[in-house]
Design a protein around this nucleic acid. Structure first.
Length: 569
DNA sequence: TGAAATTGTCATCAG
DNA sequence: CTCTGATGACAATTT
């Protein structure tokens, strides 16, 4: 919402940041179901692609020209030879093998947002022998400085120029790769980071710090987050749209928070791995890049701040898919789009806990903070525990790496202990570490099982609810059917009674077969009155036995006919 | 500031 | 008897 400055108290403007995303998503769903599609795009290879011509026209000069001149419904557009169909798909992975194809396709189609700068960036990344970080595009330093706090904008790093890459969708429908994002949140976060006194320590690990005998030096310089803006900061992106991908990612991670969305465990695991490789980098149309510097120059950000930062990243980044083979092969494409995306050398951004040898003297500040938020927090915490173990191992001078203690099988572990003549202290430590690590993992599994169990129960409840609804509907339908049948029987009886002049016995039989639950109310009074009149006649003729003739009936014919007929039913 | 959530650890049990 | 995994309970910490 924004307030009209002239009519501050009475007028508001509402602009939904989610709306564009919803529209695009809906269009893509329609396209997939071939709803309202009015054009077929065919490649030279014969592959076809149904689409909405308005969407095509809105993002490609080529289509704009072709489509605007068409007036036939369900027209067919044949693409130039150099255009490959995958460029129109929801997501396309950029790799060495296809980048030229994509470039040619994009060029031929005149995709408005996928301009040369994109490939200026991508091609060196794929084909240059230099480190990717060395080809990091230049940044619009001047423009970003305006909106940045001094301590985060004064960067010595390579800057991005105004023509920085704008990662955008290859597909007209795609929003996962490119979307607007709020700068302000990031800036606020960065400000908080720099101002937050807690950044130099993490209370949760005081125990660890104490054990390591390393007091936190509160006089450490405040953290400096290097900040890049890769495009002119958009003024209308105050509220960033955080569409599908971030939602999907959050969905995955939500399970840990107890929101029981269906989660593919493999996906989640992979996601966790990938999150470790995320850089604090935001890269989209109206966004700025936040990049955590490598370990030699980075400062520590405390966990909450990191979580918030990461959350912002999750919500805002529209990064490029990494060329890391592991990532492209093992993750769903959308996951890569969300997670991979380091424009920088992966080696500097992978979250790695320092090995024991490296650990000395690093304390917490040796930790990269690229791994934060949600599940990675868990891993981070685990890493601190591991670090604690490593430190202890260092103190008692264990002759083998800590990792082995946990990872190796029982037999191997026993063998190792047998081979090494360990002191009592070492032995204790090793067993303790193994036990705790195993237990930690067991606790995780246990909790996960619990969550899964709850989730399954939730599903079961939903299923039963649905089933109940269906049964209620069925009951209602059957009830109506019964009523209808009763009414027709009633009408039939009425006709029979009025036209057949039945003797009392038959009337009595008829009354006998009326069921209480079948509301044959319409003809019961008629029977009663008929019986009543016939009874009078018979009484006059046979004064002594008239009542007995109908005595077996449910109907008490001495009574006055009731209006509702229930008394005889 | 307090409640809720998260996570590691310990104790205990069963296999 | 020891080891291991599962799990309840608790505490520390974060959200």
């Amino acid at each position: 919402f924004s307030v009209d400055s002239h009519r501050r108290s009475s007028a508001f403007t509402f602009e939904s940041s989610l709306h564009p995303g919803h529209v695009l998503r809906s269009l893509e769903e329609q396209r997939q179901r071939d709803v309202l599609c009015d054009v077929t795009v065919v490649t030279a290879e014969g592959q076809s692609f149904r689409a909405h011509r308005s969407v095509l026209a809105s993002c490609s000069e080529y289509f704009s020209q072709r489509v605007s001149s068409m007036c036939i419904q369900n027209a067919v557009i044949t693409l130039p030879l150099e255009v490959r169909l995958f460029c129109l798909h929801l997501q396309t992975l950029f790799c060495k093998e296809n980048v030229f194809d994509i470039q040619a396709s994009v060029s031929a189609l005149g995709f408005k947002d996928l301009d040369g700068a994109c490939f200026d960036f991508l091609l060196p990344k794929f084909f240059s022998s230099t480190k990717p970080s060395a080809v990091r595009p230049l940044c619009c330093k001047k423009k970003c400085k305006k909106s940045l706090p001094r301590d985060v904008s004064d960067s010595d790093e390579v800057l991005l120029d105004d023509k920085e890459v704008k990662p955008v969708a290859e597909s007209p429908y795609q929003e996962e790769v490119a979307f607007e994002c709020s700068n302000s949140d990031i800036i606020k976060t960065l400000n908080n980071v720099s101002k937050n006194d807690k950044v130099t320590q993490c209370p949760k690990y005081r125990k660890f710090q104490m054990a390591c005998g390393k007091e936190i030096d509160k006089s450490q310089p405040k953290p400096v987050i290097k900040y890049y803006c890769n495009s002119p900061c958009s003024s209308n992106s105050e509220s960033g749209s955080c569409p599908l991908v971030s939602r999907q990612v959050e969905d995955l991670f939500d399970s840990r928070r107890g929101n029981f969305h269906p989660v593919d465990a493999n996906k989640k695991e992979k996601l966790c791995e990938k999150k470790q490789q995320i850089e604090l980098q935001v890269n989209s149309d109206s966004t700025c890049n936040v990049k955590k510097i490598d370990e030699t120059e980075e400062e520590i950000i405390d966990r909450p701040e990191r979580s918030r930062l990461q959350s912002n990243i999750n919500n805002c980044n529209g990064n490029w898919t990494s060329d890391e083979p592991k990532m492209t092969n093992s993750c769903p494409v959308w996951l890569n789009a969300q997670l991979g995306s380091s424009l920088q050398d992966q080696s500097t951004s992978v979250w790695q806990y320092p090995k024991s040898s490296e650990y000395e003297g690093t304390s917490q500040s040796g930790l990269s903070s690229v791994n934060s938020g949600d599940d990675s927090d868990t891993e981070e915490t685990a890493a601190y525990c591991e670090a604690y173990a490593r430190e202890r191992a260092r103190q008692v001078q264990l002759p083998f790496p800590v990792d082995q203690i946990v990872e190796m099988s029982r037999n191997n572990f026993q063998e190792l202990l047998d081979k090494q003549s360990l002191t009592q202290e070492q032995l204790e430590l090793v067993r303790d570490m193994r036990r705790r690590s195993k237990n930690r993992l067991a606790a995780k599994r246990c909790r996960k099982r619990k969550l899964d169990c709850i989730y399954n129960l939730q599903c079961e409840i939903n299923k039963l609810k649905t089933e109940r609804e269906m049964l209620i509907q069925e009951r209602s339908r059957l009830s109506q059917l019964r009523l209808k049948t009763c009414n027709s029987v009633s009408a039939l009886c009425q006709r029979v009674c009025s036209s057949a002049n039945l003797p009392p016995e038959q009337l009595q039989q008829l009354a006998k077969y009326t069921a209480a639950e079948c509301p044959l109310t319409s003809y019961m009074p008629l029977i009663d009155s008929l019986l009543s009149s016939q009874h009078k006649q018979s009484t006059q003729l046979f004064p002594s036995g008239g009542k007995d003739d109908i005595g077996c009936s449910n109907t008490d014919t001495t009574q006055e006919p009731t209006h509702n007929g229930n008394s005889t039913a």
